[in-house]
Amino acid sequence: MDAIRYLLILSAVLFSIGAAGVLIRRNALVIFMCIEIMLNAVNLTFIALSRQLQSLDGQIFVFMVMAVAAAEVAIGLGIIVSIFRHKPTTDVDDVSLLKG
């Protein structure tokens, strides 16, 4: 198996682990960590493809994703901390995440 396939499958596996974590965990912080794992899996896809396609677009994309992740973490943790002040829990069942 050549390297590009190995890397693409590896990142698909990582992405799926992250997605599974979002679906099975209930702690808001852990769910958020799982989302970070998913974003990182996509970054690996971009870098592997960038090497394969011999273009820098993918790497620039990763650079931007890092900026996005930083801003997301700031906001996300801000929201979680501000909720925690009212109610000492990070369990998303207590904030009824799945109630449509």
């Binding site: 960590m33 870098i47 930083a70």
Partner: peptide, 22 residues
């Protein structure tokens, strides 16, 4: 994968800042 800068940025931004924030 010859993306040295991003490797270092990954260490500083993700492994450094983001994990510490968490």
């Amino acid at each position: 994968l010859s993306a040295e800068f991003l490797g270092i940025a990954q260490l500083i931004v993700y492994a450094g800042a983001i994990v510490v924030l968490f």
